[in-house]
Amino acid sequence: MDKTREMVASVVLLAALAGAALWADAAGEPFYVNLASRVAILGLAGVGLNLALGFGGMVSFGHAAFFGLGGYACGIIAWHAGNYEPILTWPFEVEGTDRMPPIWGVAALVCGLAAAAIGALSLRTSGVYFIMITLAFAQMIYWFAISWPAYGGEDGLSIYVRNGFPGLDTYDALSFFGIAFGALLVALAVSGRLLGSRFGAALTMARLNPVRLATAGIDPFPVRLTGFVISAVITGWAGALYADLNGFVSPTMLSWHLSGELIVFVILGGVGRLVGPVAGAAAYVLLETFVGGATERWPLILGLALLGVVLFARGGIMGALAGRARHD
């Protein structure tokens, strides 16, 4: 019964987001359409993190690494396409591209490989050590991006022409929202499906009781590592979209602040609730835009909201809307 309630709450939330974008477009307010795109993309990044943090119990404080790598994959490939300079000349020539699908593929690949390496080392620890090691890896990538002048270093890298998507005008705010929202729906569907599968059962047990998982004949380490990689790929996809939304990628996308923000989305929306991070990202962006318009001190409100959630409403926004999470 609670399952259906959560389903209804999730559909209503997603419909509200799409409705807001459509309404803003009809009202001739592309600013608000872009705001909805921002929510969809940050929500997507949070959905990725939630897979590791909420469902797998891996509190990664370094997911900005994947968000930023996805962003840089997008920025660098587009930069090469814009300057007609091949990305690689040896051992074979690789040209840049200004189309989203292959860029997403590269972003996913880069993030997947990075997560496999980072996860293989970090997942040998747990608890606060895991948090610190993921943070350390993300900071290493952050400082590398700052000190590597080829792609803008500290100043970042502009994407002068937004990348294309077959059949759509990506400069049209509503079309771009459609792409971001579509990506979000795909990630939600894939995550939901995944969590109900055998792998999901194992990942859930890796969080709830790793001793039981091993005793049931399933080694927790490869289960966690796979979950971490899938999580990173989704967050990286969001990073590539975010770079296109802003037409800009900079080391800020890799900074620990962003890792923290992603955790805030997950906690605010409801840890381990599928659509939770979207609700969290929406709340964050709304606060930032509307309260932030009135006072610079909007993070104070955010802090209080977060405190309230942690102290009184562990289920976050989804918990308030749909009651406690239930397993069958």
Binding site: R198, F199, R212, T215, V223, R326
Partner: peptide, 24 residues
């Protein structure tokens, strides 16, 4: 795993016997 049903707990053990847990 306390929040899971008894069946889910047992199914996990059956899952390991029945083959791979890497089915998505």
């Amino acid at each position: 795993a306390a929040p899971l049903s008894a069946r889910r707990n047992v199914m996990l053990a059956a899952q390991a016997r029945e083959g791979s847990s890497f089915r998505f």
